[in-house]
Design a protein around this nucleic acid. Sequence first.
RNA 1: GCGGGCGUGGCGGAACCGGUAGACGCAACGGACUUAAAAUCCGUUGAGGGAAACCUCGUGUGGGUUCGAGUCCCACCGCCCGCACCA
Length: 862
Amino acid sequence: MARYNPKEIEPKWRTRWNEASAFKTSADRARPKYYVLEMFPYPSGRIHMGHVRNYAMGDVIARFKRARGHNVLHTMGWDAFGLPAENAAMQTGAHPGTWTYSNIDHMRRELQQIGLAIDWSREFATCDVGYYRWQQKLFLDFWNAGLVERRESYVNWDPVDMTVLANEQVIDGKGWRSGAVVERKKLSQWFLKITDKAEDLLAALDDGRLKGWPDNVRLMQRNWIGKSKGLRMKFRFAGDAKSPDGAGDVEVYTTRPDTLFGASFIAVAPDHPLASSFAAADKGARAFIAECQKAGTSQEAIDKAEKKGFRLPIEAEHPFIGGRRLPVYIANFILMGYGTGAIFGCPAHDERDFDFAKKYRLDIIPVVLPPSADPADVKIVDEPYIGPGALYNSDFLNGLAVDAAIEASIAKIEAMGRGEASTQFRLRDWGVSRQRFWGCPIPAIHCEKCGVQPVPEKDLPVELPEVDAAVFKTPGNPLDRMPEWRNVPCPACAGPARRETDTFDTFVDSSWYFERFATDPAGWAKGPVDKGDCDYWLPVDQYIGGIEHAILHLLYARFFTRAMKDVGHVSIDEPFANLFTQGMVTHATYQDAEGRWLLPDEVIIEGGTARRANDGAPVRIGPIEKMSKSKKNVVSPVDIIEKYGADAARWFILSDSPPERDVEWTDAGAAGAWKLVARIWETVEPYAGVVGACDLSAAPAKASADLRRATHATVAAVTEDIDHFRFNKAIARIYEFLNALKKAGDADGWAKAEALSALIRLIAPFTPHLAEECWEVLGGEGLVCNAPWPTVDPALLAKDEVVLPVQVNGKRRAEIVVAASADQKATEAAALGDADVRRHLEGLTIRKVVVVPGRIVNIVAS
RNA sequence: GCGGGCGUGGCGGAACCGGUAGACGCAACGGACUUAAAAUCCGUUGAGGGAAACCUCGUGUGGGUUCGAGUCCCACCGCCCGCACCA
């Protein structure tokens, strides 16, 4: 018997698939379509186990759907712009483009070793001019449609690297690379108006359009969008006073207008215009605002920060109570980005306002009476009251419940012309400007005379200039230092002007790549996407990726698709019909006595203790964590493929844990998967030719009912499990089937041929190379990747007899065998006639017999 | 703090709609083969008791509903994830 050798067999089948163009997307639109997509990778240069898991899952689905008769779209590309390429340029002097494309080449070779059923003819990288030029076109379309805005906004500015940092690049208030204290800086930025779509992005989460999404992701998006209903209203300054810049009032936003009678102060954000207006002539205010801006933006800093305010020399009038004047503060806990950047404080019924009022000894006036409380007893001492109740101390609102009081006060304020009902969102517009070289240039030109002008479509693409890698040694965006690229004539007046040097956030690149994949490459030069192709393929039927993209990427892509619909490129608004978020790949960590992390390869484990491989020094086994370079708890997929083959790697990574949970990579598990591969081969090899020699469509032999039942039951279960993303269970069923097959040594040849033929097609999505080799040996027709999925004969699943447990007083005491068709009476009689049951009933009186046909019998006796 | 999820053998996990808890895999142990080891194959494996047939206990803890609870309800404990001064 020839030992199975994946090193020879796996490349052989990949070559055959290529020669047969087996996975080229078919133009056949008669078959039902199925678009399976995994989040495309950043081309770091090497694949990791997370990729293997992600793409193995998608590949199982893709191969399964092909076998089930679907026209499948399954593609691969590269999310290729972004910071790491510039960092590499800084460190190694390689041009970001050179570095990126060489990584892509390397990573493609590694990915292809996994044996994915992918149509590589649709591959592209987002840094291809052929891709990003159409992104520029989309941006211009959005601009025309009013979905683009340019305005000032605060950014995290790293003064050493001279660049803007994303929030996650700010660690404890310092730049992640330079370590410099990050400043808040106001810059003109480009925004996509995602808030225009907030209402629909929210509505779709609940109206069934995203019923194929996990609840937790929908919930996270709902919270992120953060809709609230309330009131916007103006507080006039008392005594006709004005702020230094002439404002006579301040507009606040509240979701609790019912508590207006409990208002005891007004607070505005440090960057509110009113604050700036006073700060211009007030050193104290200036100092206070500066202090607020310095405070860390980290969660911890916010958590610990004490509420502080700066009293402005002005007071506001209460809208309902003549003569009540409210002090006005600048307060560090008010956010300019939400509502109007100003609030009225009601300390009795809001924790933050309560803290603030305590500190500054402001009035605490209760206005909501808890249910069945006596107004005389109610005192707000240690904490505010947030719960429901009826209004009191509140004039025309007295006696109303909170909800009714909210409505009543909004109506009153509206009638007074002092404000109006208003819906607010937490979601902000999407700032897409990045002061970076390695990204898609934003197609705009700044002219001193004409202002900001779009680049005319005929001048697209705005290509990134060829640069010497040395430019990356200087901090900042090289595009700013390239007058020959930057200086261009104004498209409107032909006068001197300069290009926009910001490039797009890379989330823009990944917001429409799936629509590009759906477009036949023959149409790639004609437009961003082909609408007809998109109408056929979209939405993506199954999207698979990490939970870390639950909010940003998925929300941006949902917005982008709506925007593309607005300007006529696609017809859908939800791009992903079904979403699956897979868990991480983890591994134990190892540290030596000095605390240095060790690679799993450097460690030998025996009997629960670990030693260093080269010198036997003791090693501490640490917790199981997500594989990461920093902790060195990584296993290279390429090494595993070298050792066990891609099929074993695919099998193991799908077998151990449910796909949505984390999976722990262990060498024992990988070795176990390899054993399975070898075992299937050894099971199949003695039967060379039987499938080809046997007419499986002919009348089946009568014998071997047990094996046939096992075959058909396994096919039914595995089909169901794959359909529901339960790969671990599908694999368990296949193991059971193998065990059954082994025990069926005396089954007849026809039934065995049927069993083997089914087995190979069931494993084909998981271990495609092994399946092809087995299929060929068995004499199956063509490639197994083109073979139809095995069918189930439901008649074979039924059993003549069933084994039923019998309980006495809820405890299992015996098993009886009855005909599957036995009715309640017959089953009860069989149970009561059983010797073990009788023994347990001795001396007892039967009170009741519960018979659940096909399930259980329970005899209640006392 | 708010929101969501999860607690089952030595480990990963299974258990449809409340119906034989622990499928399947890993590890461990015993045996076969071998000069030996590896690989492979056969068997055992929730805990306790018993020579055995069997019996008792057992799904984080404490209650409850039910003929019957891992599954449903209440309270508590622990862990994980998301958001976090959003007015």
